[in-house]
Deep mutational scan, measured.
Amino acid sequence: SDEEKKVRDQAKRLGVNTEQLLKWARRQGDEDLVRIVERLLRS
């Protein structure tokens, strides 16, 4: 999905993997991002 591509691009920009991005999203309190990243991790 578009959202998932955006998440992957953001992880690349930050230089982190998906698990690290999830931690980062939780720290930001970004519920939408957390949900998308969790979906990516499960897929």
Results as ranks from 00 to 15, higher is better:
Leu33Lys: 00
Val16Glu: 02
Arg27His: 12
Leu21Ile: 03
Gly15Gln: 06
Asp30Pro: 08
Arg27Gln: 15
Asp32Trp: 14
Leu22Cys: 13
Leu41Met: 04
Ser1Phe: 10
Trp24His: 08
Lys23Gln: 14
Asp30Val: 14
Asp32Gln: 10
Ala25Cys: 15
Glu19Lys: 08
Arg35Ser: 05
Glu38Ser: 02
Asp2Tyr: 12
Gln20Ile: 07
Arg13Asp: 02
Val34Ile: 11
Gln20Arg: 04
Lys5Ser: 07
Val7Asp: 06
Arg39Tyr: 06
Val37Asn: 00
Glu38Lys: 08
Lys6Arg: 09
Ala25Lys: 01
Glu31Thr: 10
Gln10Arg: 08
Gln10Gly: 06
Ser1Pro: 09
Gly15Thr: 03
Thr18His: 12
Asp2Val: 09
Asp2Ala: 09
Leu33Cys: 12
Gln10Pro: 03
Val34Ser: 02
Leu41Lys: 01
Lys23Tyr: 10
Trp24Ser: 11
Ala11Ser: 04
Gly15Met: 06
Gln20Met: 09
Ala11Trp: 11
Ile36Gln: 04
Lys23Asp: 15
Glu4Gln: 09
Val7Pro: 04
Arg8Ala: 08
Asn17Ser: 13
Asp30His: 12
Ile36Phe: 11
Gly15Arg: 10
Leu41Asp: 00
Gln28Lys: 07
Lys12Ile: 09
Glu19Pro: 01
Leu41His: 01
Ser43Phe: 13
Arg42Thr: 04
Ser43Leu: 13
Lys23Asn: 14
Val37Pro: 00
Lys5Ile: 06
Leu21Cys: 15
Val16Thr: 03
Ser1Gly: 08
Arg26Asn: 03
Arg26Val: 10
Glu31Arg: 07
Gln20Glu: 13
Leu14Thr: 03
Asp32Ile: 14
Ile36Leu: 13
Arg13His: 04
Arg13Ser: 04
Asp30Met: 15
Gln28Leu: 12
Glu19Ile: 09
Lys5Ala: 08
Leu22Pro: 14
Thr18Lys: 08
Lys6Asp: 06
Trp24Lys: 11
Glu4Leu: 12
Leu21Asp: 00
Arg13Leu: 09
Lys5His: 05
Arg8Leu: 13
Ala11Ile: 13
Arg8Thr: 04
Lys5Asn: 07
Glu31Ala: 09
Glu4Val: 09
Arg27Val: 13
Leu21Gly: 00
Asp2Phe: 12
Lys6Pro: 04
Lys23Trp: 12
Gln28Val: 10
Asp30Ala: 14
Glu31Tyr: 12
Ala25Pro: 03
Lys5Pro: 05
Glu19His: 10
Val34Pro: 00
Gly29Leu: 15
Glu38Pro: 00
Trp24Gln: 12
Val7Arg: 07
Ala25Ser: 00
Thr18Arg: 08
Lys23Ala: 14
Arg42Pro: 01
Lys12Asn: 05
Gly29Ala: 07
Ala25Gln: 01
Arg8Asp: 05
Gln20Cys: 13
Leu21Met: 02
Lys5Trp: 05
Ser1Val: 09
Glu19Gly: 03
Arg42Ser: 11
Arg8Glu: 08
Lys23Arg: 12
Ala11Tyr: 05
Ser1Ala: 10
Lys23Gly: 05
Val16Asp: 02
Ala11Gln: 09
Gly29Pro: 02
Leu22Val: 02
Arg13Pro: 02
Glu4Asp: 05
Gln28Ile: 14
Val16Gly: 06
Leu22Phe: 01
Lys6Gly: 03
Arg35Tyr: 04
Ser1Asp: 10
Val34Gln: 02
Arg39Trp: 11
Glu38Ile: 10
Gln10Asn: 06
Gln28Pro: 01
Arg42Leu: 09
Lys5Arg: 07
Ala25Leu: 14
Trp24Thr: 13
Gln28Thr: 12
Glu31Leu: 14
Arg42Glu: 07
Leu33Glu: 00
Asn17Thr: 14
Leu14Gly: 02
Lys6Trp: 13
Gln28Arg: 04
Leu22Ser: 00
Ile36His: 02
Ile36Tyr: 08
Gly15Ser: 06
Val34Gly: 01
Gln20Pro: 01
Arg39Met: 09
Ile36Glu: 02
Glu38Ala: 02
Thr18Leu: 15
Leu33Ser: 00
Thr18Ala: 13
Thr18Met: 15
Arg39Asn: 06
Arg39Thr: 04
Glu19Thr: 05
Ala11Val: 09
Lys12Met: 07
Asp9Trp: 03
Arg8Lys: 05
Asp9Lys: 07
Glu31Val: 11
Trp24Glu: 15
Asp9Glu: 11
Leu41Trp: 01
Glu4Tyr: 12
Leu22Asp: 04
Glu38Thr: 04
Ile36Val: 04
Ser43Lys: 13
Trp24Leu: 07
Asp30Ser: 07
Lys12His: 06
Gln10Asp: 03
Glu4Asn: 08
Arg8Met: 11
Lys6Phe: 11
Arg39His: 12
Lys23His: 13
Lys23Ser: 11
Asp2Thr: 09
Leu22Arg: 02
Asp9Cys: 15
Glu19Trp: 08
Ile36Asp: 01
Arg35Glu: 07
Arg8Cys: 14
Val34Leu: 08
Asn17Lys: 06
Val37Thr: 01
Ala11Thr: 04
Gly15Trp: 08
Leu40Gly: 00
Asp2Lys: 11
Asp30Phe: 15
Arg39Val: 06
Arg42Phe: 07
Val16Ser: 04
Gly15Asp: 03
Asp9Pro: 06
Arg13Ala: 06
Leu41Asn: 01
Asp30Glu: 04
Asp30Tyr: 15
Arg27Ala: 15
Gln10Ile: 15
Arg35Asn: 04
Thr18Phe: 15
Leu14Arg: 03
Glu31Cys: 14
Glu3Gly: 09
Arg8Ile: 11
Arg35Leu: 05
Glu31Ile: 12
Trp24Ile: 14
Gly29Cys: 15
Arg27Phe: 12
Asp32His: 10
Arg8Tyr: 11
Arg35Thr: 02
Arg13Tyr: 03
Glu3Tyr: 13
Leu41Phe: 02
Gln10Leu: 15
Gln28Phe: 14
Gln28Tyr: 14
Arg26Ser: 07
Arg27Asn: 14
Leu40Lys: 01
Gly29Phe: 14
Glu4Cys: 15
Arg35Cys: 02
Leu41Gly: 01
Lys12Thr: 03
Leu21Ala: 00
Ala25His: 01
Arg39Lys: 07
Asp9Ala: 12
Thr18Trp: 15
Ile36Thr: 03
Asn17Pro: 04
Arg13Glu: 03
